[in-house]
Amino acid sequence: MLAQIVLFDGFDPLDVIAPYEVLAAAALVADRGFEVELVAAGGPREVPSGLVPLTLRATAALDPRRADLVVVPGALGSLADPGGGEPTEDSIPVLLGRTLTTGLPALLEEALDREGVTVATVCGGSLVLAMAGLIEGRPATTHRMGLGMLTAAGVRALDVRVVDDGDLVTSSSVTSGLDLGLYLLERELGPEVAIAVEELIAHERRGTVWRAATGRAPGAGVDGHRVASA
């Protein structure tokens, strides 16, 4: 299975590295796993993060025709002015908004439309999808400071650690990239693989996973249900 993790100017490094290491570690503990690539909408390049001067290299272009899983991180920058002033050029909302002027939204739309592809997000990654108008009406989560932005974009914002809505899996704050990666391993490769990676990285998942009601799990209601992740 191929996982492509998206880089864009100003990305949050931990949003990228946490799921990268978790997903890649599956191959160390099992006979199956993910091949993981760092990608960018425009193809291979050095991509500056929001943590100057750290950069990561995208080794390939984001390609929903190849990927089984696409992971979108959030941004790292200054916070919005609590007094309601104009956001600065290095603020998180501005950095996320700049992705809309690139080829990323069209590629993410293709990924969501393509059968068999899961799009996952960490922290503000769901805001990229929301601002692009790609997840209106769907349940999703993000950092608590961004839940209002999700709601304003017509998304059903949920204040939980991970939200599983089938081909869209979103996670909340920065460190949730670890929990997202482990949950995706459990969902795609089985609990044995997820537990083995948990033990390898000495991390226990936090919070709950909210799953859309699909009829697969006992007790699922029409609005979905919360499932303990540990």
Rank of each mutant, 00 (worst) to 15 (best):
P73G: 08
G97T: 09
H225E: 13
R187S: 09
V36K: 01
D164V: 02
L7N: 03
V29E: 07
I17V: 15
L54Y: 06
G148K: 13
A140K: 03
V227G: 07
L51F: 09
C123W: 03
S91A: 15
D31S: 11
R161D: 06
E115L: 13
A60S: 07
R206W: 12
L189H: 06
G146Y: 09
L28S: 15
R161E: 08
A106I: 14
V16W: 00
A157F: 04
G74H: 01
V22Q: 02
A30E: 04
L79A: 12
V47N: 01
L112Q: 08
G207R: 04
P105N: 13
L147G: 09
P44R: 03
G85D: 09
R32G: 04
V160A: 05
G116L: 13
D12M: 10
F8T: 05
R98D: 10
P44Q: 03
T88V: 14
G133L: 11
S49C: 05
D90S: 07
E37N: 04
L200K: 06
T170R: 02
A130L: 11
F34H: 04
R138M: 14
L158W: 00
D179L: 02
T208G: 15
F34G: 00
P87Y: 01
A111E: 11
A61G: 04
E199A: 12
V39W: 01
G207P: 04
G42F: 00
E46D: 14
V193Y: 00
S78R: 05
P105Q: 12
E21I: 06
A27P: 08
P53C: 06
W210F: 08
V209A: 03
R66F: 03
P87Q: 03
L28W: 14
